[in-house]
Design a protein around this nucleic acid. Structure first.
Ligand SMILES: [Zn+2]
Ligand SMILES: [Zn+2]
Lengths: 442, 442
DNA sequence: TTACACGTCG
DNA sequence: CGACGTGTAA
C-alpha cells in the first residue's frame, strides 16, 4: 500500500484538482503531537499501512508531518489535514461556488470553523472505525459518487402497515418523526478482493442552505439534556443527532469542524441478497429551537475504509418533524407550483442520483438486521493475544477495548460488558505505568 | 415584638384557620441544623427579634424547634415550617378547592413538592431580604389582600410612544415581549411608625391552571444557557425568570418548593408622590419548550417584612410572548364570545381587585427609578463598625456583604464592587479561621 | 401587519 | 386529521 493520498478523494465531478501529497521528508508542526509518534522513517510508515490493511495494526511511534499540514488525535487515530491558506479572504469562503465538491483548501470561517482538505487518518492502535474523513470537515463535498463499489442507498417502499416516515421522490427528501427508525439499505458491488475489505458507512447531517452549510449540525438545548427520555441508553452520545441502531456503531466528533457523525461497520450481504440494511433515527427536529432552528438539512452518507478514505458518496434531504405526511404534501405542492426556484434552495438533483425505492418484506428486513448485528471483531479474542504484544501496543489495544466495552455496556445495560470494561480500564492503567511510569508521554 | 405567628397570614377570605404556633419549648428536629443555633432560650429569641427589627441583627446561637416543624437555612435565615400532614391523601392535594387561600398543611405532591404553611423566617445575621415566605411554598395563597398598608399595584397607562407590553383590563392580564421592562407601581398607605418599617416586594411566578399550580415555574433549557445573550450580567441568576432592575433586588430560591423568586426592598415614596415604581422583566416566554410550555402563569406580588411575613398580596396574569397585541386581542375576543367559561381557567376576578391604570409621564418615572436606586443600607458604613463586633457576628456580616457586593459587581460591572467583594471574601476566610479553626461548624 | 410554518391537542 | 396557538419573516 503506497501513500498516494490523491486516491483519497476521486475526481468525479469534472474538476481536476491536483492535491499536494504528504512530502517524503516528514516534519512535525503541531503542538498537539505526542512523543510517541516522533522519529519513524518513511518505510516504517509504509510498512505500518500494510499492517493496518492486513488488520494487524502497528504502533506508529513517530511521524513527521510536512509544513502546511496540521494534525490532531481522535480515537487512536492521527488525523492529518492540509492547513488553511492564510491569504484567502473570508468573503471568498461564503461564495457558494467554492462549495461545490472541489478539493481545494478552504480558509477558516468566522465562527472558528476550519475547512481542510486532503485528510488522511492514520490509526496507531486498534481502531473500529475512522473518526474523521473528508466528510467531517466544514465543507464536505455532497456530490453523489458511486465509486468502484457502485455505492447506492435504497429505502424500502411501502412496507406492511404504518410507517413513521415518508419519502418524496420529486424532492429526494425523507420526512420523518423524531426518534422513529428509518431503514436505509446499502447496496455495494464487491470486487474480488481477498480478504473482503473493512468498509464503513458514515452518516453526517449537513445544513443544505449555503449560508449554513459549513456549520456543524448541533443538538438543541432541550434534547441535549442527559435526563431527557429520548437519551435513555445514549447518555454518552447526547450531542449526536443521527443514531444508528447497530450495536457496533461509533459516534466520533471532528473537533476542528465540530461535526458529530455516526459510523457503522458494514457487513457483506447475506448470500443471495445484495444489500445490507442499517436502521437510523434522528433525535432532534429540524425545527428545534437553538439547534437546527428550522434550517433544512441533508444526510450525507459516505462509504469509507478504515483510513477514512471516501469510496462512495450519496446524500438525502431529511426533515424531522411532527407531521411528516402533511409537510411532505405541502412541500411537494409548493415545489410543483413555484417552478422549482422559490424556497427550495437545495438544487434540483438529476434523476439517476435519486434514492431508489424497493419492496422488502418485514421478515427479510429482520433477517438482515440480525445478520448486521453479528458483524463484530471478537473483542475477547483480541484480548487473548495480549501477552504476545509489546507493552505500548497493549496500552492502545486495551484502552480502545475499554472504551468500546463501556459503550456497549451503556447501550445494552449488559453487566458482563461493564465488568469487562472495568477490567480493561484497570489493565490500561497497569500497562500505562509499565511503559510510562513518570507520566511523561500520556 | 412577640412571636405570634398567627399574625403571619391574615384571614381575609372568610375562612378562619387556627394555625398552630411554634411551641414555647423549642426542639431541634432537623439534621440540617448547625451547631451555632443550639441552646438559646425563649427570651433570647424574643430579644433577638427586637434587635432584628431595630436593625441590629443578633447571632442566634441555638434554637430548638418543636416536633412537626421542619427547618432549613437560606441566605443567613433559619426557615421554620410546619411538616406536612402524613395522613392526607395526595388526591386531596390536587383538589382545587383545597388551593384557595387557606393555611392548612398540604401533603407532599408526587413530584417531591412540599407544601408547608406557617412559615417563619429567622435571620441570624445581616440579611437584606427574606429568602422564603408563605409566597414561596408550593401552593401559596393568591387571593388579593390589601392588608394594613392598603397595598395596591398599578400599571401606568398609555405613556408616551411605543410600549412593549399591553394590559387587558377585562382579563386582568399583561401581555409582554420577552426581556422588555414592565413598570409596576407600588402604592402603600404608611402608618405612623417610627422608624419606617423595612418592607419588601416579592414577585413569584405561578402556573394559574390548577393542574400545575404547585409546580415551580422554571426556566427553559434554551434560555438557561449561561452564554445566552439575554443572561448578560445575570450569570449568577440564570434560573430566575422574573427579574427586577433594582440594584438591590435579591434572587432567592426556596429549595423545598423549588420556587425562584425576586425580592426588592421598597423605599418610601418621595414627598408628594404616593407610589414607588419597580421595573420588572421576564426572560422566558410563556410558550418556552421545556420551561413554561405554553402554560399560563400569574405573577404573585407580596408585600413582606424582613421576617417574610406577608403584609399584603396582589396577583396579575402575565403572558410573555412574541406578539402581545395580537394575543391580547385574540384572548379578549375569545373571552367575550365564549361567555367566560371555556379555556380561561383562571377565575374571573372581582372588579375592585383589578390593577388600576394611571397616567405617569416619562420624567416622573425616571425620577422615581432614581429614587428607588438610592435606597440601600450603606454597606461600607456597616464595614466600618466591624471592629466592634464579636467574631462570629463579623463572619455573617462579611459573608453577606461579599455576596451582595459580588452580585452588584455582576450587575454593574463596577470594578470597585469587585474589589470590595474580593476583600470581603478574604476577610470572611480570615474571620472563619479565627472562630472555627478546625472547620467543625461551617 | 399579514402570511406562513409548524408543534400540539382533541 | 382538522383546528388552533404561537413564533417568524416578508
Ligand atoms: Zn432538539
Ligand atoms: Zn425560555
Amino acid at each position: 500500500m503506497a501513500l498516494n493520498i490523491n486516491n483519497n478523494n476521486p475526481q468525479h465531478n469534472g474538476h481536476s484538482n491536483p492535491t499536494p501529497a504528504v512530502q517524503s521528508s516528514y516534519m512535525l508542526n503541531s503542538g498537539d503531537m505526542r512523543n510517541y509518534i516522533r522519529g519513524i522513517t518513511d518505510s516504517d510508515v509504509e510498512h505500518a499501512f500494510d499492517n493496518i490493511l492486513n488488520d494487524s495494526p502497528p504502533v506508529v511511534r513517530d511521524l513527521h508531518i510536512a509544513e502546511n499540514y496540521g494534525t490532531h488525535h481522535n480515537n487512536n487515530q492521527l488525523v492529518v489535514y492540509q492547513e488553511s491558506e492564510p491569504n484567502v479572504t473570508s468573503s471568498a469562503m461564503c461564495d457558494s461556488t467554492h462549495l461545490q465538491g472541489t478539493n481545494d483548501a478552504y480558509p477558516s470561517a468566522p465562527g472558528g470553523d476550519h475547512t481542510s482538505s486532503t485528510m488522511l487518518v492514520i490509526p496507531y492502535g486498534p481502531v473500529m472505525a475512522p473518526a474523521c474523513s473528508e466528510a467531517t470537515i466544514s465543507y464536505p463535498s455532497i456530490n453523489d459518487y458511486p465509486g468502484d463499489y457502485n455505492f447506492e442507498i435504497l429505502l424500502d417502499g411501502t412496507g406492511s402497515g404504518f410507517k413513521a416516515w415518508m419519502y418524496s421522490y420529486e424532492l429526494n427528501k425523507v420526512f420523518i418523526d423524531i426518534g422513529k427508525v428509518l431503514p436505509i439499505q446499502v447496496k455495494l458491488l464487491y470486487k474480488h478482493e481477498e480478504p473482503l475489505p473493512r468498509l464503513f458507512l458514515r452518516a453526517t447531517p449537513i445544513y443544505s442552505q449555503d449560508d449554513y452549510r459549513g456549520r456543524p449540525v448541533e443538538r438543541c438545548p432541550l434534547h441535549v439534556c442527559r435526563d431527557n427520555k429520548i437519551n435513555e441508553g445514549y447518555e454518552s452520545v447526547v450531542k449526536h443527532i443521527v443514531r444508528c441502531t447497530s450495536a457496533h456503531c461509533q459516534y466520533p466528533v471532528d473537533e476542528r469542524s465540530g461535526r458529530h457523525t455516526c459510523v457503522t461497520p458494514l457487513s457483506p450481504p447475506q448470500p443471495g441478497a445484495d444489500t445490507v440494511t442499517l436502521m437510523y433515527n434522528f433525535v432532534c427536529k429540524t425545527s428545534c429551537l437553538g439547534g437546527m432552528d428550522r434550517r433544512p438539512v441533508l444526510l450525507l452518507l459516505t462509504l469509507e475504509n478504515q483510513l477514512g478514505q471516501i469510496l462512495g458518496r450519496r446524500s438525502l434531504s431529511v426533515k424531522i418533524c411532527a407531521c411528516p405526511k402533511r409537510d411532505k404534501e405541502k412541500e411537494e405542492k409548493e415545489f410543483q407550483t413555484s417552478g422549482s426556484n422559490r424556497r427550495v434552495k437545495g438544487r434540483k438533483r438529476s434523476l439517476e442520483t435519486r434514492v431508489k425505492e424497493e419492496m422488502m418484506d418485514d421478515s427479510e428486513l429482520a433477517a438482515l438486521e440480525t445478520e448486521n448485528k453479528k458483524f463484530c471483531p471478537d473483542l475477547f479474542n483480541i484480548g487473548l493475544v495480549l501477552s504476545t504484544l509489546p507493552p505500548d501496543h497493549k496500552y492502545f489495544l486495551m484502552s480502545n477495548m475499554a472504551t468500546l466495552l463501556a459503550g456497549m455496556f451503556v447501550k445494552k445495560g449488559n453487566d458482563a460488558c461493564r465488568q469487562a470494561a472495568e477490567k480493561c480500564a484497570m489493565l490500561v492503567e497497569q500497562i500505562k505505568n509499565e511503559i510510562d511510569p513518570n507520566g511523561e508521554q500520556f
